[in-house]
């Protein structure tokens, strides 16, 4: 609908020009007509709620009675909320557990699948498939495979003679580990594709030069591959970090935040406060702000850290373009 309306607006603009509308104005109108369909939807359904979220964080509202401005009370309340402390700590633990593992696995996969090997496309498809597969379905399989009493994983461990079989998702100590393992397995294929794309942009001459200089594969990896991949690694790191802070689905499917609160994460708590029992929209929004600030802070730190490395990379790009 909006697209049609804008097209006709732009069509109307064309004859106007003949009556002397400036070329620039006409061009701008055409450009806006291209952007409008997406931008209107984006404004209404993303931008407005984002702004609304900032306001709501300072209010108390159950959705029934009138909203009340309460200043920083929501944030003060967090300090004494054991659930918030648990959710905050577990989110950090999840991020620390997931980010490096995912990046290392994805990079290793990409390098392996960038070799000239038999059935390369098959292996690439296989590694990417968990990412596109429905989360509910693959989580259901994982829960069965890692079932503490009947699952094949523990049966296998038992047949090897392992005592004290891990309780996986049901154990206080192993629940978070299970969620992290599942997330890495599910998502690394996506980042592998991005690394693959990065590897295809590397300069083969540098490897020839390095091997002429007598560098072995390992040295080539450290001194040629990694530096050339720096922009890709930077992008992947930012994406994985943001994704990890937002974790919800994986936790919901594998552990439901339990046992107890041992895998309660921030988004899980936000959902519970807003949609389970008496809605606490204000408090949920305040928690959302914490999540947002966390993501923002870590992203800014990464950009600052990436700046020094960025300088040589830009030079290289300029050279390539020339």
């Amino acid at each position: 609908m909006p697209s049609q309306a804008n097209k006709s607006a732009a069509a109307a603009a064309t004859p106007v020009k003949k009556r002397g509308m400036k070329k620039e104005t006409r061009e701008a109108l055409i450009a806006y007509s291209f952007i409008a369909p997406n931008f209107i939807g984006f404004c209404v359904f993303t931008l407005v709620p984002v702004i609304f979220a900032f306001v709501l964080a300072f209010m108390e509202w159950d959705g029934v009675h009138a909203a009340k401005f309460i200043g920083l009370d929501n944030f003060i309340r967090m300090a004494s909320d054991p659930n918030f402390k648990a959710a905050f700590v577990h989110t950090i633990v999840y991020v620390i557990g997931t980010v490096p593992t995912t990046i290392i696995c994805a990079l290793a996969l990409a390098i392996l699948l960038n070799q000239k090997i038999f059935a390369r496309n098959f292996f690439r498809t296989v590694s990417f498939f968990p990412y596109v597969a429905s989360l509910v379905a693959v989580a259901a399989v994982w829960n069965m495979l890692f079932n503490p009493s009947m699952g094949p994983v523990n049966q296998f461990l038992a047949s090897l003679g392992v005592e004290n079989l891990p309780k996986w998702a049901a154990g206080n100590d192993t629940a978070m580990l299970t969620v992290i393992m599942f997330s890495v397995w599910k998502n690394m294929g996506y980042y592998m594709v991005i690394f693959l794309a990065g590897l295809q942009g590397t300069n083969p001459e540098l490897y020839e030069a390095a091997s002429l200089d007598g560098a072995n594969k390992w040295q080539q990896f450290w001194n040629v591959t990694l530096p050339q991949l720096a922009p890709t690694t930077f992008f992947v790191t930012i994406m994985v970090v943001i994704q990890s802070f937002k974790v919800y689905n994986e936790v919901y499917m594998i552990t439901q935040g339990g046992p107890g609160t041992s895998t309660l994460v921030l988004v899980y708590q936000i959902y519970n406060e807003a949609f389970i029992g008496t809605p606490e929209y204000g408090y949920a929004s305040a928690l959302s702000m914490v999540l947002f600030l966390l993501v923002l802070a870590v992203t800014i730190i990464q950009f600052k850290a990436g700046e020094d490395k960025d300088a040589p990379k830009k030079k290289k790009h300029a050279k390539k373009a020339a």
Binding site: T46, L47, P49, F52, Y281, L291, V295
Partner: peptide, 26 residues
Amino acid sequence: RNALFLGYIGTIAVPWQAYMVPQFMM
């Protein structure tokens, strides 16, 4: 053009989970 595009990119960094509650109420 650049300002508008920057605005777009800026919101990619805002997790949906951070504004799903007000979005739901809207």
